[in-house]
Simulated scan of single mutants.
Amino acid sequence: MVSSVNKDVHELPDKMNIETDAVIVNQLVGTKGESKDETFEAGTKMIRAFIRCEKGVGLSRNTALSKADSELIHFGDDDIIYDKGYSDKIVKEFDDHPEADMILFNVKAQEGRETYWNVDFAPVTWKNYGRYPAYAIAARREKLLESGVKYSLLFGGGAPYMNGEDSLFLHDCLKAGLKIYRTTVALGHEEAGKSTWFKGYTDKFFYDRGVLYAFLYGSLADILGFRFLFKYRKEMCAEKGLFKCFRLLSDGIGKGRELKKAK
């Protein structure tokens, strides 16, 4: 299930080395076009593409999930290049681990954007779920649908608040009781390019991080938020200072708590 923005859906299957049937949701942002649905063949693969005049990565992933019909599903981005045989690796890993509702695979991120690399097969818990991007995630579709978990429309590219949508998604999956595991199996790599959301350590960066922490950590958001800033203070807070950054983050936490109450 590929989320893309302003891409040619006919080129993506070959560019990404997609080996299976696929659902592509391509959002048209800042460009002319109209919403439409397409179905076409790419070699032996059947591709269903949904072009939408809208924005928001959470909305894109939810649309893809609603259109998928396979037993196993895998979230993807348009800048992921898959290795030959990756699809068989996913199937084998789920066959070998029937206890897993969801498995987080290795995908090599571009240099400077690495957040994780699995070195063992182990459960994903409340202690370590926050490091994984969407393109690591594969799941048993029925289990995910039964859980009722969907991507938040508040966070991520094209949403009101910056990144964090993947962490919140996995948070909600754990809360719903899904059994999540990590694996050393690698599927491919991320194509080099600029971040679509990170514009430096701006006021919005800290405020939005506070909104996210309210959703992830509840009453512990302030404590864990300060710990996060203190740990990375030399990098993140060099310009503004630790306490100004914390005030911005705290304001965001307050907004996040308001949003949670309104849900």
Rank of each mutant, 00 (worst) to 15 (best):
S4W: 02
K7Q: 15
K7A: 12
V9Q: 01
V9L: 04
H10Y: 12
H10A: 06
E11Q: 11
L12S: 06
D14H: 08
D14N: 09
M16P: 02
D21G: 08
D21V: 11
I24V: 08
T31G: 04
S35K: 07
E38W: 01
F40A: 06
F40L: 09
E41F: 09
M46V: 15
R48C: 05
F50S: 14
R52N: 11
E54M: 09
K55P: 00
V57M: 12
L59P: 03
A68C: 10
S70C: 13
S70R: 09
F75D: 04
D77K: 08
D83M: 06
K84R: 13
D88V: 00
K92F: 07
P98K: 11
E99R: 08
A100M: 09
F105N: 03
F105H: 00
V107Q: 01
K108Y: 13
Q110M: 10
Q110G: 00
R113Q: 07
E114T: 14
E114K: 15
W117E: 10
W117T: 12
N118M: 04
K127R: 11
Y129T: 02
R141Q: 04
E142C: 00
K143F: 01
L145D: 01
G148L: 09
K150Y: 08
Y151H: 14
S152L: 07
S152T: 15
L154Q: 12
F155K: 06
G156L: 02
G158N: 05
S167F: 01
H171G: 00
K175P: 06
A176G: 09
A176S: 15
A176H: 04
Y181H: 14
R182H: 12
R182A: 12
T183C: 12
T184I: 13
T184W: 05
L187V: 08
G188P: 10
E191P: 00
A192D: 14
T196W: 06
F198N: 10
Y201Q: 07
K204Q: 14
K204C: 00
Y207W: 12
V211D: 10
L212R: 12
Y213L: 10
A214T: 05
L216D: 02
L216N: 07
Y217I: 02
A221N: 10
D222A: 11
F226Y: 15
F228A: 10
F230Y: 14
K240I: 03
F243Y: 14
L249E: 05
S250Q: 10
G252T: 01
G252V: 02
G252I: 04
G254F: 00
K255E: 14
R257N: 13
K260C: 10
